[in-house]
Amino acid sequence: MGIRFTKAGVIYIILTIFMGFSAINTNNNLVFLVVSFMLAIMGISGFLGKANIEKLNVRIHPVEDPFAKRGSRFILEIKNGKRYLPSILLKTNLRDREITFIILKPLSSIRQETILKFDRRGRILLDDVMVSSPFPFNFFVRYKKYHINEEIIVFPEIGEKSFFNFNRNAEENTTSTNDKITMKLEELSNIRSYSNDPAKRIFWKQFAKTGELYTKEYTGEDSESFRLYFEDILKLYPLEEAIKIATKTVLEAYNNSIPLTFTISNETYNVKTDADKRSVLKRLALYDA
């Protein structure tokens, strides 16, 4: 709990001192009465200001899956645990995002949406929310840290590249991950290490780059779904880039209802449902983190 005086508050203190001097020097008891009221109000308002940000319960819930490097919607909920007093003009600050709540009645709660952005994938602990308020008179701002201790898993950043090649324009590419877009699909399903495969399947482009042989796998009568080995992507790209590509690929597969089998560290996921998709993204988020 802390307190910071505002300019108006400092002026009020100076005025009270001035009135105090006037009272003493005129020996007028009515001026003393005004000073007494000024001091009393200062005291009572200080007490009320303190009570205003006390007994609150702050919680945060994600509205959508948070991905690194892009804003995600969260709901911030504040509950006033006070039996009689409302909380007025509350300001919350969480990861530099400020939300203002005008009035929160006793024993009631209020929710407001906020956008949070995370720089990296993995487990992120939302530990504290700073609640402050200039209530009642804007003479001082009281603030108090509330522990929320909410651990969230931030999914990896969605990369530009994917193993699917869709004909779509750049604008569509930047919108929400949940949007399903009509796409034309090429039949590439996987890239894996070379193992006596026909020459036409060799990924020559990659050979030219790295000197190692890879085989392109295509969908056809012999395979029911696309297969993607994360460790194979890792052979082509640095870790973070590989994770981004995998994320993009998984999302595109899910959004376009393309059956995908994703293998990472010997764990295999069939991405069919939303839960499957989220399991894969969680695995990717926590990979080596």
Binding site: F32, V35, S36, L39, A40, I44
Partner: peptide, 18 residues
């Protein structure tokens, strides 16, 4: 605030040095 400040002010009124 004003309601509680009345008794508090009365108390202060008698305490403030003259």
């Amino acid at each position: 605030i004003p309601i509680f400040s009345i008794p508090f002010a009365i108390l202060l009124f008698f305490i403030i040095p003259r």
